[in-house]
């Protein structure tokens, strides 16, 4: 029986810039940063209060997993904001919004009261968008 999700993957266009975005802007903690040859590293971060969920910041690069054509297609799709990998929750959405905005994070939607809670939408440095949510 499956019990938990421990690791999920967000495809990013540049690992260095994603590292800066997720740690310095979102305030996530680095869990693993293991060099894997000259051009790759195994880079995982965790939300500040959820050390058991590792988010792997995986580079979209030509290799065994992605062909050149796939990389081109994925780069285009990610850049134009096709993918929304998840929802982050916070205790105070207005304070979080103000902080992230002042750090230059791009919001697609400001905090808005919906019937299910208050929600905002922001993009990471690659173009992946996330929901920021407060119940």
């Amino acid at each position: 029986m499956i019990s938990k999700m421990t690791n999920m993957c967000v495809y990013v266009l540049n690992q260095d810039s994603a590292f800066d975005f997720y740690t310095n802007k979102l305030g996530f903690k680095v869990k693993m940063d293991v060099p894997m040859g000259a051009n790759a590293r195994w880079l995982t971060v965790t939300p500040p209060e959820q050390p058991e969920l590792e988010i792997t910041l995986f580079p979209v690069a030509v290799g065994r997993m992605f062909s050149e054509e796939t990389v081109k297609l994925m780069t285009e799709l990610i850049s134009k904001g096709t993918f929304g990998p998840g929802v982050f929750s916070c205790t105070d959405i207005y304070a979080t919004y103000e902080e992230l905005k002042s750090k230059g994070v791009e919001f697609v939607k400001p905090p808005t009261k919906e019937f299910y809670g208050t929600e905002a939408l922001f993009k990471d440095d690659s173009g992946n968008w996330f929901s920021l949510y407060q119940q």
Partner: peptide, 25 residues
């Protein structure tokens, strides 16, 4: 290093115990 990477990713990237982690197209 492979102790720290989930097997599925290592497999998809062709990273094996004896590889030097170069990207293999």
């Amino acid at each position: 290093p492979l102790m720290f990477v989930p097997g599925c990713f290592a497999y998809q990237h062709g990273w094996s115990e004896n590889s030097n982690f170069e990207i293999v197209p």
